[in-house]
């Protein structure tokens, strides 16, 4: 297993945001975590990355227990998060943002940055401009490009489709499929259930911090039918 999360708890004071979560991701898998606002999706990703300290449970990366590790150390070990809202550095240029992505690496990355520019020509055009000039879609490209430069084994994306037009959402999911075909494992948090289930091999559904459903997209569709039937039967 690439990532194994067991019994993970996140609390903010009395607010129990993630409740005893179990989750696994294998090599080359795309796993999606779905849930409404406030379900605890971001908290889960932050606890996996190590920027929020879980109050209980363990996180294993590539078989090693990383629960006590700092977030930067997890980045160096190939775990990279594209945060909610993209969070690019607007006071840095586009190019400097990409260089920041490679901060944890010692070897030269200029060739890889060129690859990113080839993949996202819009970014190449704006290479030396402050990243504040980018549109929302371009910012998302930059955020993903920046994450790729950290050479992730597992990339976590927190609601990447948020605020993008339908066409850009299409392109985003094509990109996710492509990255996965190249071997990258992806943990995708989404509220766009329809699109996420098309790209994912497996899914978890969170409600108020608890896993209420999990399985392959087909299994989830099956469950949904049952639920609907139950609701219909009850009414």
């Amino acid at each position: 297993m690439l990532l194994e999360v067991s019994g993970l708890d996140v609390r903010y004071g009395r607010n129990h945001a993630v409740k005893s979560m179990d989750l696994t991701i294998g090599e080359g898998e795309v796993v999606t975590v779905l849930g409404a606002n406030g379900a605890g999706k971001s908290s889960l990703l932050k606890a996996i990355q190590g920027t929020v300290k879980p109050s209980g449970g363990r996180v294993r990366l590539g078989g090693r227990d990383v629960t006590g590790w700092s977030a930067p150390r997890r980045v160096r070990d190939g775990l990279v998060l594209v945060p909610e809202g993209r969070q690019i550095f607007v006071s840095l240029t586009v190019h400097e943002n990409l260089q920041m992505g490679a901060y944890s690496r010692r070897e030269p990355v200029e060739a890889e940055i060129s690859d990113i520019y080839e993949r996202f020509p819009n970014l190449a055009q704006r290479r030396d401009m402050p990243a504040s000039v980018l549109s929302g879609g371009e910012q998302q490209m930059l955020a993903i490009g920046r994450a790729l430069l950290a050479k992730p084994k597992l990339m976590m994306l927190d609601e990447p489709s948020l605020g993008l037009s339908p066409i850009l959402v299409q392109q985003l999911f094509q990109l996710i499929d492509q990255l996965n075909r190249d071997g990258l494992a992806i943990l995708l948090v989404e509220q766009n259930t329809f699109m996420a289930l098309q790209s994912a091999h497996r899914a978890y559904v969170l409600e108020l911090g608890e896993t209420v459903l999990q399985g392959t997209p087909e299994q989830l569709a099956e469950e949904e039918k049952k639920l609907e039937a139950a609701y219909l039967g009850a009414s």
Partner: peptide
């Protein structure tokens, strides 16, 4: 400079 702007995101870059 990245810490100056967003320390939490800088952490995500491995800083």
């Amino acid at each position: 400079r990245s810490i100056a702007e967003r320390p939490d995101t800088a952490t995500l870059m491995g800083v």
